[in-house]
Simulated assay, not measured.
Amino acid sequence: MAHGWTCSGLRWTPDGPVLGWDGGRRGALPWGKRVAFAVPEDGVRRCVGARGHACPGRIAVSGRSTGARCEECARLDRAHSVAADTIADDPRPYRVYLAWFGPGMAKVGITAVERGDARLLEQGAVCFSWLGTGPLMAARRTEELLRAALGVPDRIPYAEKRAVRSALPRTAAERAAELRELHARAVDLPGWPESLRPAECHVADHVTVFGLDRAPGAYGEVVELAPGGAVSGELVAAAGPDLHLAVGERGVVVLDTRLMAGWVMVPFGGPGDRLGLPVREFRRAQEGLF
């Protein structure tokens, strides 16, 4: 197999998105940067392991899996996840948040106070507001209260988030309106845990952070990587794990960097833009953002 690097995922830093690679290598992703790589013809996607441990069997995994883990490693990773509600004795304080991704698309979630807004950047939240702070189990009960009383989900598929990014309201005030209303309804609910301290509504907007205020709308998303596939395009925006790449006449396509995990990749040195990966077009009509 050709020598290359293995991607360890996209991280959000105070300076913007950074793509990580094996061996601790990190590459900053400023707007306008050319992202170009290829999967060798003999490439095989291998399980990335769990909790810092390599997969014992280096098992081959599906190209469409965003987790890039075999069944056993996925089970191990899930067993130690706060998001899976399997940890009840975490002593750290937690925040409950409301995140908004587009019209009619809001969710409730929790994150450790020490993480700041990193979780919201990782999820691609267009805007968000804190709802309250307290112990883990109190945060969990508040999350469940909103799901039961207001029908607010705790998960929204990434495919749905991507499909509405190019049709967002133009102003921050318009984008915040739905979130403000939801926040007001939430704090008025009876049954809040006494140990959870409510927070005033203060909506933070990530449109500029993600570069969505200047990027053309995307027409579709990469479905999977495959042996012999390649992509070369200009980075125009990023949100959550997604890179928005301009690939010439075809326009802008969204690449979920989680699909890169487990592949050994090599630089693509071909001329111009290239998109040699399967793409699924978004179902709803896309309009220019601004």
Rank of each mutant, 00 (worst) to 15 (best):
34 R>K: 03
32 G>S: 06
199 A>D: 01
29 L>H: 00
178 E>T: 14
145 L>K: 08
240 G>T: 04
257 T>N: 07
88 A>K: 05
194 E>D: 10
100 W>C: 04
148 A>G: 04
265 M>I: 15
35 V>T: 08
213 D>E: 09
251 G>C: 01
17 P>L: 04
10 L>E: 10
270 G>M: 15
261 A>G: 01
172 A>C: 13
116 G>M: 14
95 R>W: 10
19 L>E: 05
16 G>W: 10
95 R>L: 09
47 C>R: 12
256 D>Y: 09
188 D>V: 06
135 P>W: 12
121 L>E: 00
231 V>T: 00
209 V>T: 15
178 E>D: 12
173 A>S: 11
50 A>T: 07
177 A>D: 03
199 A>P: 08
257 T>V: 00
264 V>P: 04
18 V>M: 03
272 G>H: 11
282 F>R: 03
45 R>F: 01
268 F>G: 06
200 E>L: 13
206 H>R: 10
272 G>R: 11
210 F>V: 01
154 D>I: 04
27 G>A: 03
105 M>W: 06
127 C>S: 12
11 R>V: 15
73 C>D: 02
201 C>P: 05
55 C>T: 12
140 R>V: 01
122 E>Y: 05
244 H>S: 02
187 V>E: 06
208 T>C: 03
160 E>S: 12
263 W>A: 14
262 G>R: 06
116 G>K: 13
61 V>H: 06
168 L>S: 03
261 A>N: 13
13 T>P: 03
158 Y>T: 00
189 L>C: 13
150 L>I: 00
251 G>D: 01
55 C>R: 12
152 V>K: 08
115 R>A: 09
87 I>G: 06
174 E>A: 13
8 S>R: 15
50 A>E: 04
263 W>E: 02
171 T>P: 05
184 A>Y: 06
86 T>Y: 12
263 W>S: 09
215 A>E: 08
144 E>C: 11
256 D>C: 05
190 P>H: 00
163 A>G: 07
149 A>P: 08
10 L>S: 13
38 A>K: 15
106 A>S: 14
71 E>H: 03
242 D>Q: 10
16 G>M: 03
77 D>A: 15
23 G>L: 11
